[in-house]
């Protein structure tokens, strides 16, 4: 009896802890997103204004993160870059989640030829190492941030299609789907009202966990010159531009590097926490 009470209390404490963690992460990310959304208002200097007189200044009172080789304020550029990087990554994750889930639900529900054809196509995409394939696609499409997003979307949707498909296959034979058919609901209604809510948990967790990865990959493509083009402030291309000065003026690389690091860690922690919250083993009481 005592033992049981303790476990329940422990569970409750753990649940509260997860919730607090979720709230803290959401506040931090909310601040980050706000800063990104109002980047031009938040940044202390114009991120694109060149001042060759104060080029490559060390971090100090005037420029907290220093300046780059054209004398542009690094802090302002990092803040401006957050807009480009984070919103492209969010857009990218939205696209692949929606496309992947729709394809996955249709494949999983109908099966047969449609499923076979679409899954073989997704196999083709999954057969290549992701980043290499993305570089190839971005190269063919020629650089530019929007093309980088397209390239990464091309290689990432099959993951969500696979996930959604496997989830649909586990729920589509459940009696409640049969009951919905007996209630006279059409296929589309069954998919939206009964299948989607029951598979959404796994998809949301994967999508949130993928935001960090997508930020890294977008920054990676930009680093290689296949994403954002100068002078656009973007973390990947900022690091790439500064890499020759890594030994003399490390702040030029470290500022955007730390920005990527912190953002990715935050989004990954959020993903983990969301998974803990949505875990079916924790959701005994709604």
């Amino acid at each position: 009896m005592t033992e049981k009470t303790i476990t329940i209390r422990e569970q409750k404490v753990h649940k509260d802890y997860t919730k607090v963690k979720l709230i803290i992460l959401l506040i931090l990310l909310g601040l980050l997103l706000l800063a990104a959304a109002f980047a031009s208002k938040v940044s202390p200097f114009d991120p694109y204004e060149q001042d060759l007189g104060s080029a490559l200044q060390e971090p100090g009172d005037a420029h907290i993160f220093g300046t780059d080789r054209y004398g542009r304020d690094m802090l302002s550029r990092v803040i401006m870059g957050s807009q480009t990087t984070i919103f492209s990554a969010l857009l990218l994750v939205c696209i692949i989640t929606v496309v992947g889930t729709v394809v996955g639900i249709f494949c999983g529900y109908y099966g047969g030829k449609l499923d076979a054809v679409l899954m073989r196509i997704s196999d083709i995409f999954l057969a290549f190492p992701g980043m290499v394939f993305a570089i190839a696609v971005a190269g063919v499409l020629s650089g530019g941030l929007s093309n980088a997003v397209v390239a990464l979307a091309c290689i990432s949707w099959p993951k969500f299609a696979r996930l959604a498909r496997s989830q649909v296959m586990t729920v589509k034979d459940a009696p409640y789907i049969a009951a919905a058919k007996l209630a006279g609901s059409g296929t589309v209604k069954i998919m939206i009202k009964h299948i989607l809510p029951n598979i959404a948990g796994a998809i949301i967790v994967t999508a949130v966990l993928d935001i960090g990865t997508m930020i890294m990959e977008l920054a990676g493509l930009s680093f290689l010159g296949l994403g954002a083009t100068p002078p656009t402030a973007e973390w990947g291309s900022m690091m790439s531009n500064g890499r020759s000065m890594l030994q003399t003026c490390p702040w030029v690389v470290l500022a955007p590097g730390f920005a990527i690091f912190i953002t990715v860690v935050l989004f990954n922690l959020l993903g983990d926490t969301v998974r803990d919250v949505l875990d079916p083993r924790n959701s005994a009481s709604h």
């Binding site: 009951a179 809510p197 029951n198």
Partner: peptide
């Protein structure tokens, strides 16, 4: 229990 949608 299985014949009712757990989310409805």
């Amino acid at each position: 229990q299985d014949s009712f949608d757990p989310r409805c």
